[in-house]
Design a protein around this nucleic acid. Structure first.
Length: 152
DNA sequence: GCCAACGTTGGC
DNA sequence: GCCAACGTTGGC
């Protein structure tokens, strides 16, 4: 089983939004980066666990945990000209973008802020804290996953 | 294939 | 709101 981290903007769709969805489940649409797309499409498997991270907000932080409950399928928001994430290059018969469904698992006992994660030598090399990193979906090595949980 | 211009991300 | 870092686009 692999571990991941996915970013969301709490003003758009945060962990509380996920927790209040039917079945506490929602599709994770809007990823428009090839590196992130490849991980979603090729590597994310059912029951993989995901840290939910809030970006572009007052305190960027890891807030909780979700689980992959459906593997990659076409991101239909790319087909809809009315949609914010519309991409005319993505067609239903040759989709360019994919998404997974994630289900809320739990919140961490406390949010673990980015500034704190940056301080930890144990997390050196984690994509999240690399300078200039913009990946919205990234893998978390198991030992780093466990270390982050130990900070709760 | 190079690279300047432009758009986006996201911390601060 | 600023701006550094990065990805994408498109002229050549």
């Amino acid at each position: 089983m692999k571990h991941w981290l996915m970013k969301s903007e709490p003003g758009e769709f945060g962990i509380d939004d996920l927790a209040s969805r039917p079945n506490q489940t929602e599709h994770w649409d809007g990823v428009r980066n090839y590196q992130a797309r490849n991980m979603i499409r090729d590597e994310m498997k059912i029951d993989d666990l995901v840290f939910i991270y809030h970006s572009n907000c007052e305190v960027p932080a890891i807030l909780g945990i979700a689980r992959i409950v459906r593997e990659a399928y076409p991101d239909h928001t790319a087909f809809n000209p009315e949609h914010k994430h519309f991409d005319p290059m993505s067609k239903p018969d040759s989709p360019r973008w994919f998404m997974v469904d994630v289900q809320f698992v739990r919140k961490l006992r406390r949010a673990i802020p980015l500034v704190e994660l940056k301080d930890k030598p144990e997390l050196e090399g984690l994509t999240l804290i690399r300078r200039g990193n913009r990946l919205s979906v990234l893998p978390v090595p198991e030992e780093m996953w466990n270390f982050i949980l130990s900070l709760e």
